[in-house]
């Protein structure tokens, strides 16, 4: 994958199994979001092929669910919690909802129960906390029992407690039902107990493997081309020494801060 002469990655051959939880890490600008957009069919690869469930991806596929970056809804959004989930089910259809409201409501209720959001089902969306809103997004993404669930930094700006809760929820609901999860994140610690494999993108290169294989001083030093130390402490991974800039002009310092402490 490349933009002009800037190569984001090259020769990436990745096969994600049903039920697998893949974390995608890397500094800003390393191509994590592009990676997701390719899978969503919103961007085309500059070379190579991408398939989901044995078929080429198409934009708007019902086999893929997605949870976007955590971004709060404005306070006066004219939707309740349940209305957001309902949009995930049939929001792409034309015309007003004339028939089948009862069936739709039942489906929404089941989804809300799955993510533990029944308590605030009828609350206005705008007054819910970030964690509550992300649970709704999970319900929305799970609406079609997708084969693949794509998550773009869904934990950003949540507190630690909610980070763990939301990531376990995603893991339980998706992987236990045979869906693969691709989880883009800055911060591996909240999802450490759920991750099967890690794809680390940096500086136009990448490394794939289990957490233990990828999150080591040697691998990261090699990817960034400068010495990096990875420590393990009380079940957490602390990365020290990620350079301010990795051939990308903006934001790498931010990554460093997020990786090093919680």
């Amino acid at each position: 994958m490349a933009f002009g002469d800037r190569v984001l990655w090259d020769g990436l051959d990745l096969d994600v199994a049903p039920g697998e939880f893949l974390a995608v890490l890397g500094p800003n600008g390393s191509g994590k979001s592009t990676f997701l957009n390719v899978l969503l069919g919103l961007k085309e690869l500059s070379g190579g092929a991408v398939e989901v469930g044995g078929q080429p991806v198409t934009s708007g596929s019902r086999r893929i669910g997605s949870i976007p970056q955590q971004k709060s809804f404005p306070e006066d959004t004219p939707l309740r919690a349940r209305d957001l989930v309902a949009l995930g089910i049939d929001g792409h259809r034309w015309g007003p909802r004339l028939f089948g409201r009862k069936k739709l409501n039942e489906r929404v209720d089941t989804l809300l129960e799955k993510v533990g959001a029944t308590r605030y089902a009828d609350q206005p969306l705008g007054i819910l906390s970030g964690g509550e809103q992300q649970r709704l997004r999970a319900a929305q993404a799970l609406a079609d029992n997708p084969d693949l669930l794509l998550c773009d930094e869904p934990l950003l700006s949540l507190d630690l407690h909610h980070q763990r809760a939301v990531s376990s929820l995603i893991h339980r609901q998706a992987c236990d039902h045979g869906a693969a999860v691709i989880f883009v994140t800055h911060e591996i610690n909240p999802i450490l107990q759920n991750v099967d494999r890690v794809l680390y993108l940096a500086g136009g290169r990448f490394h794939i493997g289990t957490v233990d294989e990828v999150m080591t001083s040697d691998v990261l030093s090699d990817l960034y081309g400068s010495p990096i130390e990875v420590f393990r402490s009380k079940g957490r991974i602390v990365v020290v020494g990620i350079p301010e800039s990795v051939e990308h002009p903006h934001g790498a310092g931010h990554t460093d801060a997020l990786m090093a402490g919680e």
Partner: peptide, 14 residues
């Protein structure tokens, strides 16, 4: 409504 309140998910939904 979908695109207006939730552009990212709506785009992903095609």
């Amino acid at each position: 409504t979908f695109v207006s309140v939730d552009p990212a998910v709506a785009a992903a939904r095609g």
